[in-house]
């Protein structure tokens, strides 16, 4: 059997003395959309940070196409094809919209995503392309953040709470772009507090609770009761 795109194997993560993840395992196959849900502090963002190389972890806890990459520096992880859309957008404030996108692409990885493609996906960004990024609305900034990650032509896109702080109609627009992204063959891991959106978008769902995987399964097989129980740990 071929190696999956991403295999997270018994991952532990610590912030100093505080342990945030306990033996988390997860699998993403090519072309798949996986959602990670859970309450605040459950460890969802930490999980993405570990995959993206922003945290020190055991080498074989994260495997990408069978290659152990746990603990690799973040910039190397990006060059392998894993890109992160950080929580809270985190655009570069002294760069314009277009410059933010260009930074995403400066590694020069080959692939279908370029400025034109990104503007095609998010047309309203093109009008604001030379404006400083902080001048955009929250929803537009989120689009820039996603576009910036896409510009590195990743195989795996990690989305950390892209609905955070946005109005429902904006969230809907942003999530409407996900199928177009996945259609290119990208795999996605989506961390969400919005369970409805997560279940609609992903095929496979993992629910974290206090650093552990409390529930996992195909989205369509998970009932509300099961999810509530796993989410809140009751």
């Amino acid at each position: 059997m071929a190696d999956p795109l991403l295999q997270v194997r018994a991952l532990d993560a610590h912030y100093g003395d505080f342990q945030a993840l306990f033996g988390v395992s997860m699998r993403v196959t090519e072309g798949e959309v996986v959602a990670v849900i859970g309450a605040n502090g459950a460890g969802k963002s930490t999980l993405l940070k570990c995959i993206a190389g922003a945290m020190p972890v055991r080498r074989n806890a994260i495997q990408y196409y069978g290659v152990s990459i746990g603990g690799d520096p973040a910039h190397e992880v990006v060059s392998r094809g894993i890109a992160l859309v950080p929580e809270g957008r985190r655009l570069f404030p002294s760069l314009t919209v277009e410059e933010n996108l260009l930074i995403g692409g400066q590694l020069g990885r080959k692939g279908p995503w370029n400025l034109k493609r990104v503007y095609g996906l998010f047309p309203m960004l093109e009008q604001h392309r030379h404006q400083p990024s902080p001048s955009l609305s929250g929803g537009q900034q989120q689009m820039v953040a996603i576009g910036r990650a896409l510009m590195s032509n990743p195989r795996l896109l990690l989305c950390d709470e892209i609905s955070l702080g946005l109005a429902p109609i904006v969230i809907r627009d942003i999530y409407a772009s996900i199928p177009a992204i996945a259609a290119e063959g990208l795999s996605l891991v989506i961390v969400e507090q919005d369970i409805v959106q997560a279940l609609k978008t992903a095929r496979h769902v993992y629910c974290l609770q206090e650093g552990r995987v409390a529930l996992q399964g195909e989205a369509k097989t998970l009932t509300r009761e099961k999810i509530s129980a796993a989410y809140f740990g009751v």
């Binding site: 993206a52 910039h75 930074i103 995403g104 910036r148």
Partner: peptide, 11 residues
């Protein structure tokens, strides 16, 4: 601007 995000963008 942001050294940790810069890293996450491949810099």
């Amino acid at each position: 601007d942001d050294p940790s995000v810069a890293r996450l963008m491949g810099l």
